[in-house]
Computed example of a mutant assay.
Amino acid sequence: MKIGLIGFSTRNYIPYIEYYENIFKSNNISYECIFWDRFNSDNTKKKSNEYTIHVVCKPGMNKLRKIFPMYKFKMELERIIEKEQYTHLVVLTTVPGVLIWKKLLAGFKNKYILDIRDYSYEKYSWYRKIVEQLIANSYFTVISSNGFKTFLPQSDKIITCHNIGKNFSEEKEIGDLKKKEKIIIGFVGGVRYFDENCKFIQIFANNPKYQLYYIGKRNLDCDLEGYCKRNNIKNVVFKGEFKNEDKPEIYRKIDFINAIYGNKSLEVTTALPNRLYDGILFKKPIIASEGTYLGNVVDEYGLGIVININKPTKNIIEKFDKYINNFDGVNFVKKCQEFKEKIFFEQDNFLKHIRLFTSKIN
Rank of each mutant, 00 (worst) to 15 (best):
M1P: 09
L5C: 08
L5I: 10
T10Q: 04
I14V: 09
Y16I: 14
I17P: 09
I29G: 13
E32R: 06
C33Q: 04
F35L: 05
D37M: 01
F39Y: 06
N43T: 14
K46H: 06
V55L: 05
V56T: 04
C57M: 13
K58M: 02
K63E: 00
R65G: 08
K66D: 06
Y71S: 03
F73M: 10
K74M: 07
E78S: 11
R79H: 15
V91R: 10
G97R: 01
W101D: 12
L104F: 11
G107Y: 07
N110F: 01
N110R: 07
N110M: 02
K111C: 01
I113Y: 03
I113S: 03
L114Y: 07
S120M: 08
Y124V: 10
S125I: 14
K129T: 06
I130T: 08
I130S: 09
T141W: 04
S144P: 09
F148I: 09
F148S: 08
S155M: 09
I158L: 12
T160Y: 04
C161L: 12
N163W: 02
G165D: 08
G165H: 07
E171L: 09
I174M: 15
D176F: 10
I183K: 00
G186C: 00
F187G: 02
F187K: 01
V191D: 04
Y193C: 01
F194A: 04
F194N: 11
F194I: 08
C198R: 05
F200S: 08
I201Y: 14
P208W: 10
K209P: 08
G216R: 04
L220R: 11
D223R: 02
D223G: 05
D223H: 04
L224H: 07
L224M: 09
G226E: 13
Y227V: 11
K234T: 13
K234A: 01
K234D: 05
N235V: 00
V237G: 07
F242T: 00
K243Y: 03
E245R: 00
E245D: 01
D246K: 02
I250L: 02
Y251A: 00
K253C: 03
Y261R: 04
N263M: 05
T270G: 12
P273A: 09
Y277H: 15
I286P: 03
E290W: 08
T292C: 07
E300A: 13
V306R: 00
T313V: 15
T313K: 12
K314E: 07
N315V: 15
N315E: 15
E318N: 06
F320V: 11
F320P: 12
D328C: 03
V330Q: 13
K334Y: 06
C336F: 05
F339E: 07
K342G: 08
I343R: 09
D348T: 10
H353L: 15
R355F: 09
R355W: 05
K360N: 15
I361M: 11
I361N: 12
